[in-house]
């Protein structure tokens, strides 16, 4: 029994210590945001690495998610004789939820894990310590550009994901199944509000960008400097990012869209 309490206590303390470490780290990152923002070339390189290189997976996934939504949505809607509403169903689910969330999950797997591994290896090979020795602040030189790249890239990727999804739904719904194109677009336009739906979706993506960015740089920066440590840090990045994206999405959805319709 005492053994159980001992383990529970140790677990609680280690979780709290980790949270405290993370909070201090986040504070340090935010404090150096302005300094890091001045390094434009570094930021561009990181956006290229995190954002541009994720474009293919985002485009293809968006297209297929839209196509699947169209097929499944059509199956249900045509039972009620309202297959024309397919456009608004697809667009609303993509813009409000699937665009930001799926883009963030893919981003965490594609770019977040890579950032963690990169920074973790820098730590393991003592590059970060070497920078410190040369009076180069590793946080503003290495961490902040990667964090800001996530912040900038994810909203762009989410919008691109949603657009690709709408185009996929158009291809399947209108070209393949044969829903009237006019009804598809006009129903969509009647139900999607730019400010309430599109901009709220973008804001969600921005919040997810902050979360995924912070988690991936934190896990890399505080990875144990061994091969095993880097590998477990990479895993943790994907797991914690995905969980926090889904949790944040629920909270944001309740705040944004409850009582809207």
């Amino acid at each position: 029994m005492v053994d159980f309490f001992e383990r529970l206590g140790a677990l609680t303390l280690s979780v709290l210590a980790r949270l405290g470490l993370a909070t201090l780290f986040f504070g340090a990152v935010f404090a150096r945001m302005a300094q890091g923002a001045k390094r434009g070339a570094l930021l561009v390189r990181e956006i290229h690495f995190a954002g541009v290189r994720s474009l293919a997976i985002i485009l293809v996934s968006g297209l297929f998610v839209g196509m699947v939504l169209a097929v499944q949505g059509y199956e249900v809607l045509q039972r009620f004789g309202s297959a024309d509403a397919l456009g608004s169903l697809v667009a609303l689910s993509l813009v409000r939820e699937l665009g930001p969330v799926v883009a963030a999950l893919l981003f965490a797997g594609r770019a977040g894990s890579a950032v963690t591994a990169e920074i973790g290896l820098m730590r393991a090979t003592e590059q970060l310590a070497a920078m410190d020795m040369m009076a180069v602040d590793p946080i503003s030189r290495v961490i902040v550009p990667r964090f800001m790249a996530a912040l900038v890239s994810l909203p762009i990727l989410a919008v691109i994901f949603s657009s690709a999804g709408v185009i996929g739904a158009y291809l399947v719904g209108v070209e393949l199944i044969g829903i009237d194109a006019g009804a598809f677009w006009s129903q969509m336009r009647a139900s999607v509000d730019f400010r309430l739906d599109v901009l709220n979706g973008l804001f969600k993506a921005l919040v997810f960008g902050v979360a995924v960015g912070l988690i991936s740089v934190f896990e890399g920066y505080h990875a144990a400097p061994t091969a095993e440590g880097v590998s477990s840090a990479t895993t943790r990045t994907v797991v914690i990012s995905s969980l926090s994206v889904l949790t944040l999405d629920f909270i944001l959805t309740v705040l944004m869209f409850r009582g809207l319709n």
Binding site: V95, I156, V166, W185, R189, V192, D193, F194, V198, L202
Partner: peptide, 10 residues
């Protein structure tokens, strides 16, 4: 993509 969202979808 954002313009597409604003003009065509929204």
């Amino acid at each position: 993509a954002l313009a597409f969202m604003a003009l065509k979808v929204g």
